[in-house]
Design a protein around this nucleic acid. Structure first.
Lengths: 172, 172
DNA sequence: CTAGGTTAGACAACGTGGTTGTCGAAATAG
DNA sequence: CTATTTCGACAACCACGTTGTCTAACCTAG
């Protein structure tokens, strides 16, 4: 991270003059692109009846999945302790996005499932994301956006998205 | 955010078959690209003598700037209270990345400056970012990467990068 | 069938980073 | 000179993560 402290590099034409970007700016702009989408998503979700959802909740819903899961397994997927996952679920349960049902086949397990409201938020999220993408297609042109997405896939090859976002940014 | 709950949309050929990407995947991959760069940056920084730096610290150093700043102003730039900014600075001061000097022209102010060690971490960060970018240039080809960066700039037009990352993800 | 180990979830104590509120000292406006 | 603003410090509090412990339920050997 450095704009003022940039390593001006060995001779030749500066990178910017060749239309290139300093490495740190690529990182910053990737994050900013993500953040623009997420901020707009949640502004629109708030307008559409989901004012209490936060960026993290999308990752949680994704980790819960259509078949439900347990607090332990959720903690594993999110990279946090089962207790932390449980506390997050407490909040989402209060907001009406998930329910805990007891598993008849294993009396210890409490299976967490999305409620109708939870599914509704996911359907709306998908639509809003697609609308943002559609605006990007206008801004870049559809061919250019397809190339952009293809390159993005090349650079981030994994099939599985890392969901262990909570605490990732933290200070220690 | 939805893979299983995708809105399959009205008729025609599915977006994937046209080489397009669902909107939510664009967001996820932008974040993943950022995260790949940041994770590699900090792994390499740790190897080069800066094992205690965290993703957030880069934003803090950026907000401090080459001329130094005060806790109040830093809090403003990071979007947190002056007290929170002060606590963060306490930690960085203990680690030897910043010093607080009293301002002879205003006895209330304590100007925070980067130490030599702080500047060293920025110089190394810039170099590491550029190395990662260079590998991306190999993966995509230099022309394709330039186009990618150009499109990224189009999509994230702002001059100023938002530094108010702490708490942005939080749950309430 | 039972004994021992494992697993899920609840509960408590704690740490870290954020918040607000208050205060005194120093600067500034009138 | 006085009144107001601003900076930094201190304290109380809160949100959200952590670890540790405990009980109930399941599973597997013998």
């Amino acid at each position: 991270m450095s704009s003022e402290y940039r390593t001006e590099a060995r001779g030749e034409m500066p990178a910017e003059a060749r239309g290139e970007m300093p490495g740190y700016e690529v990182a910053l702009r990737l994050f900013q692109g993500f953040r623009l989408m997420i901020d707009e998503l949640h502004a629109e979700l708030a307008r559409q009846g989901h004012p209490d959802l936060r960026p993290m909740h999308g990752f949680v819903f994704q980790a819960i999945g259509p078949d439900g899961t347990t607090a332990v397994e959720l903690g594993r997927r999110l990279g946090v302790s089962k207790q932390a996952a449980g506390k997050t679920l407490d909040g989402l349960e209060r907001l009406g996005y998930v329910v805990r049902e007891s598993d008849p086949r294993d009396a210890r397990r409490k299976v967490v499932r999305l409620t109708e409201r939870g599914v509704d938020s996911l359907v709306r999220s998908a639509r809003i994301f697609d609308e943002i993408r559609a605006r990007w297609a206008v801004a870049l042109g559809p061919d250019r956006l397809r190339a952009f997405e293809s390159d993005l896939r090349t650079l981030t090859p994994s099939e599985m998205f890392p969901l262990d976002v909570p605490g990732w940014f933290g200070s220690d």
